[in-house]
């Protein structure tokens, strides 16, 4: 039995006469003990899926089970065994770190000491501030406290909605280390993120866009399914370079990627052809090299296909 099984989940929001289709028939499975990432830009429908799976939102059609319990019928069972960390910090700001933790432990009819081993590694980092009010903590501290509170009742499945949004690079890395430690303790983790570079840190990912899942698989599988040559190009005039590249019929797509432009080449075209073309258009100085595709490249290509 999978930890989370989602089948054709649909959620629509009505705003006035317009209907916003937030989630349009999404299906995926998460195996036990897996660290599963839902990756997509803002407005892809990630939060709606999480809110449905944590029984905060009723689906319009389709269904899902979490640890074998139906999200509509057995919602009470689910509330006993999932941990949820919403995107926005939502602990009591006027209670101290310690009080928040105790409060959430007690309403799950457990105690901090009972499951201390689970949160120990995280809690020791915020323990020096345990008498400080939660509202007075720094962003990274708040996030660690929120994770502790979501874990304190030893959930079977942990839902983390954009836990790393707005967090600095060092804290982000630390946070992912914590998640991998938790997975080793047997907790299934679903995490959503808008950052493509975090995909490679998950066991499996689902790439989402506009309420639909474009592909699911391990990061390696997704990258391997990318069957085009991809070249990174850099020149003095980056904007002009992109314009020139986009006019070229030998490419599938070109977009800026960090300090380079990534160019997806059509079949049969390679670096040599590229150099010739750029020389003929006044970019003889261009720095060109082949790169292995990343998840972001796959995402860009999948989006491109959707538009076609």
């Amino acid at each position: 039995m999978s930890a989370v099984a989602v089948h054709n989940l649909v959620k629509q929001y009505k705003s006035g006469k317009a209907i916003i289709e937030a989630v349009q028939g999404v299906s995926f499975d998460v195996a036990r003990g897996e660290l599963f990432g839902i990756i997509g830009p803002d407005g892809a429908g990630k939060t709606s899926i999480f809110r449905m799976l944590t029984t905060l939102l009723l689906p319009d059609s389709g269904g899902a089970t979490v640890d074998g319990s139906d999200i509509v019928k057995d919602y009470q069972a689910i509330r006993q065994k999932v941990g949820y960390m919403p995107g926005r910090f939502s602990l009591y700001q006027d209670l101290t770190v310690e009080e928040n933790l105790h409060f959430f432990a007690t309403i799950f009819k457990t105690s901090v000491t009972e499951n201390y081993t689970l949160i120990k590694d995280i809690y020791v980092q915020i323990e020096p501030f345990k008498t400080r009010k939660a509202g007075k903590l720094s962003g990274g501290m708040k996030q660690k406290l929120a994770l502790c509170c979501a874990l304190i009742h030893k959930p079977v499945v942990l839902f983390l909605d954009e836990p790393t949004t707005g967090v600095d690079a060092v804290s982000r890395k630390e946070f992912w280390d914590m998640l991998r430690n938790l997975r080793q303790q047997g907790i299934t983790i679903l995490v959503s993120t808008p950052y493509m570079d975090e995909a490679s840190l998950c066991d499996r990912v689902a790439l989402m866009q506009k309420g639909k899942i474009m592909t699911t698989g391990t990061p390696q599988q997704i990258i391997q399914s990318f069957n085009h040559n991809i070249l990174a190009v850099k020149a003095q005039n980056m904007y002009g370079l992109l314009q020139v590249l986009k006019q070229w019929n030998a490419i599938e797509d070109a977009y800026s990627f960090g300090e380079y432009h990534h160019v997806i080449m059509k079949e049969r075209y390679d670096k040599k052809v590229m150099r010739q073309y750029l020389a003929s258009t006044g970019y003889a100085d261009a720095d060109i090299h082949a790169v292995t595709p990343t998840i972001e490249d796959c995402f860009m290509q999948l989006m491109q296909h959707k538009h076609d």
Binding site: T54, T55, L56, Q76, R79, Q80, V82, Y84, P86, S90, L91, F104, I107, F108, K109, C149
Partner: peptide
Amino acid sequence: IEQINVTP
């Protein structure tokens, strides 16, 4: 209230 609502 979100955090409270996901509890039993």
